[in-house]
Design a protein around this nucleic acid. Sequence first.
DNA 1: ATCCTTTATCGTCGATGTACGATAGGATGG
DNA 2: CCATCCTATCGTACATCGACGATAAAGGAT
Lengths: 112, 112
Amino acid sequence: MAKKKATKQEKCCDDSDVALPEDDTAADLAGLAWAVAHPARVRIVRLLIGRKACVCGEIVEEITLAQSTVSQHLKILKESGLIQGEVDGPRVCYCINRDKLKLLKKLIAGLK
Amino acid sequence: MAKKKATKQEKCCDDSDVALPEDDTAADLAGLAWAVAHPARVRIVRLLIGRKACVCGEIVEEITLAQSTVSQHLKILKESGLIQGEVDGPRVCYCINRDKLKLLKKLIAGLK
DNA sequence: ATCCTTTATCGTCGATGTACGATAGGATGG
DNA sequence: CCATCCTATCGTACATCGACGATAAAGGAT
């Protein structure tokens, strides 16, 4: 039962035994991809990339969502490590974590 | 009330008015990112990149999940456009959509 | 001390994701 | 035609997301 007789196809499915390389990065990539897997979060990330940093309130103005919803998205982004929040008096100043962004790019670019 | 007295910070938050460029791509990026936002799907994508193509059954063997679950992940990947399935007799042969993969890479790399 | 501003968290609701077993559908082989 | 193999889909259960309003918490400002 090891070899099929190739009834009609010859075109499909090579049997090369590609061991999946470093499977732990799958979770890393999934986590970072998940962070940008929502349009609002993509917009936030782009906004933060465009500026050096940005106060939460400004983000809420840009994104047409309730403040609490934006806050949740910020939390998700923060948990992924893609952004960082720094308390600045009564406000919170968010900025991109360039290293994480670089890692995301590397992992995506490494898909080959 | 337009300017704050800068009580203690000077370091934070530039006010440059960066209009978010092409917001429609946010949804595209979110959709593609969503496709790889799960470890199992990352593994599937990598598997399909490593080989030219792969039958569903082989994928099920590689991924330690029930066949029905793998089938669902394949469906999600197919809906994102990242992979394509071609019926090949009783089997289904999956392969990467290189164009979509390229688009994903482009969108991620364009995050700057 | 009190008010106001800013942000995070809570509670809720509906929708969706993730996982599984069971089952149906389609194609091949005997 | 019937049995078998492969895959998709269904049904279910639980967890989580995504959205909102309301509220709490923390830090100025008066």
